[in-house]
Write a protein that binds this DNA or RNA. Structure first.
Length: 470
RNA sequence: GCUCCCAUCGUCUAGCGGUUAGGACGCGGCCCUCUCAAGGCUGAAACACGGGUUCGAUUCCCGUUGGGAGCGCCA
């Protein structure tokens, strides 16, 4: 990238599975960097493996990106469609003597590796066709095209995260550029596509660090400019090993169903491996302002749901009541049994939201906490509520209903009435408030009960309370 | 086996030669309180190990150990 040009970034997933948490973070970093510098963020689907690539996976990846709000510029590029161009570059290398035909059969190579393994030698192509003349090959035999890589000296990957990583060239073998069926390999395709797309910065998982050296060899053979590399450490599961289904390896949009907010997810992912001093709560706008490559950590991080929950709770609390009511509405409408809210439910939802939102870490919890506001009539008691409504408690409730009925139906009045009643009966406030809560909400936990009485209104409240009062 | 990367509280991390090693999540206690939260205060909790370099190492170098990645006509 020259001084006055804008960076070009890309996210290049292969559609052999859904978008998981690691890929999502890679995409996020690329996106943030592009947005930070007013650059371009491209999406390239690496579908050259025809066996394993599926339309469903492409769909899942796009959906995950969209949910996370990682909008890409222009149309997604499908790598397979560019195979002709890849072939052309391989031919060019061949013509320039920088690549050669290799007629070794898969069985032959397999045997070679088995032998190397048995002898404890490094496993790599031995260059058996590197200097042979193609005329020595059997008539019409299939061949691949390999890069005639430099064998002495070293290839240095200058990485913004990992520093200078040096690879001795004699450790790198002559990689295949074009398969015997004429299709390009990943190594070739990546290099050609990045060049053609004008990619200036490559931010990707550290599992590609070794590949970077090989790609560099191709780039150098072609005399093309070298992009800035940043290989980000991988994300591990809570046990330090690979991510498993239980924690994070699932499709990113499944977090939507679990009640997480995209913004909270972005914040969490950002902090997983990147830092800005002691800052934790970093809304996207701020993240774009602050993101850089220098502060990406070098060690792998583990995925931790507890911290995600906490962050999600913070974002929920920071949202407006109306926006949260919308979020809950959408959440309820998006379930397996879609539900729609009537106007009165929505009104109650917004009114109760201040009390509701500080009690929820996810949209799921928020929806559950709001359940008692969404429909009319006496509540079904959960176990904890049933335990509260003992025979004694129901008698207390009976007296309370009479006391409340006489008052204006506003929270301060209702609270005063309850306090007076409790005092007259020699009860602690909780002994009166809890039966109230249990009958009104069907649960042992809710936002402040007098406000809930007010929001539900006199008629509805009395109907619910009377159902359990004796 | 070979190549490469990594190593600060349980977890995410700050630190970039001299700090009472800081913050966040989680955990414990106290306060607040109609429940549960939220909030406030507070406590326990870390530099993997061994050598160097240096007046002085969490920090720089080497090794050990422990994790991880790669070594395909997969990406």
């Amino acid at each position: 990238m020259t001084k006055d040009s804008k960076p070009v970034l890309r996210f290049a997933p292969s559609p052999t599975g859904y978008l998981h948490i690691g890929g999502a973070r890679t995409a996020l970093f690329n996106w943030l960097y592009a947005r930070r510098h007013g650059g371009t963020f491209l999406l390239r689907i690496e579908d050259t493996d025809r066996e394993r690539s599926t339309p469903e996976a492409v769909e899942a990846i796009l959906r995950g990106m969209e949910w996370l709000g990682l909008n890409w510029d222009g149309q997604a590029v499908y790598q397979f469609a560019r195979a002709g161009r890849h072939r052309e570059v391989a031919q060019q290398l061949l013509a320039e003597g920088k690549a050669y035909r290799c007629f070794a059969t898969p069985a032959e190579l397999d045997e070679m590796r088995t032998k190397q393994r048995a002898e404890g030698k490094p496993i790599r192509y031995d260059g058996r066709w590197r200097d042979r003349d193609p005329s020595e090959a059997p008539e019409g035999a299939p061949f691949v095209i390999r890069l005639k890589a430099k064998q002495d000296g070293e290839t240095i990957v200058r990485d913004k995260v990992q520093g200078d990583v040096r690879f001795a060239n004699d450790q790198l073998d002559d990689m295949i550029l074009l398969r015997s069926d004429g299709t390009p390999t990943y190594m070739l395709a990546v290099v050609v596509d990045d060049y053609d797309m004008g990619v200036t910065h490559v931010i990707r998982g550290a599992d590609h660090l070794n590949n970077a050296a090989r790609q560099l060899q191709i780039i150098n053979a072609l005399g093309w400019p070298v992009p800035v590399y940043a290989h980000v450490p991988l994300i591990h599961g809570p046990d330090g090993a690979k991510l498993s289904k239980r924690h994070g390896a699932m499709a990113v949009h499944e977090y939507e169903r679990m009640g997480y907010l995209p913004e909270a997810m972005r914040n969490y992912l950002l902090r997983l491996g990147w830092s800005h001093g002691d800052d934790e709560f970093i809304p996207t706008e701020r993240a774009i302002e602050w993101f850089n490559l220098e502060n990406i950590g070098k060690s792998p991080a583990r995925f931790d749901f507890k911290k995600l929950d906490n962050l999600n709770g913070q974002y929920i609390r920071s949202m407006s009541d109306a926006a949260l009511a919308d979020a809950v509405t959408d959440y309820l409408a998006g379930g397996e049994q879609p539900r729609t809210l009537n106007a009165s439910a929505r009104e109650r939802l917004i009114a109760a939201m201040p009390g509701l939102k500080e009690r929820a870490k996810t949209l799921v919890e928020l929806s559950q906490g709001a359940e008692f506001l969404l429909s009319d009539g006496p509540r079904k008691l959960d176990d904890a509520a049933a335990k509260i409504l003992t025979a004694d408690a129901r008698r207390v409730l009976g007296g309370l209903v009479a006391a409340l009925r006489a008052r204006d139906w506003v929270a301060p009045e209702l609270e005063a009435a309850t306090r007076e009643f409790a005092e007259a009966q020699g009860l602690k406030l909780g002994q009166a408030a809890q039966p109230l809560r249990a009958a009104l909400t069907g649960r042992a936990v809710s936002p402040p009960i007098f406000e809930m009485l007010q929001i539900l209104g006199r008629e509805e409240s009395l109907a619910r309370l009377s159902a359990y009062a004796t």
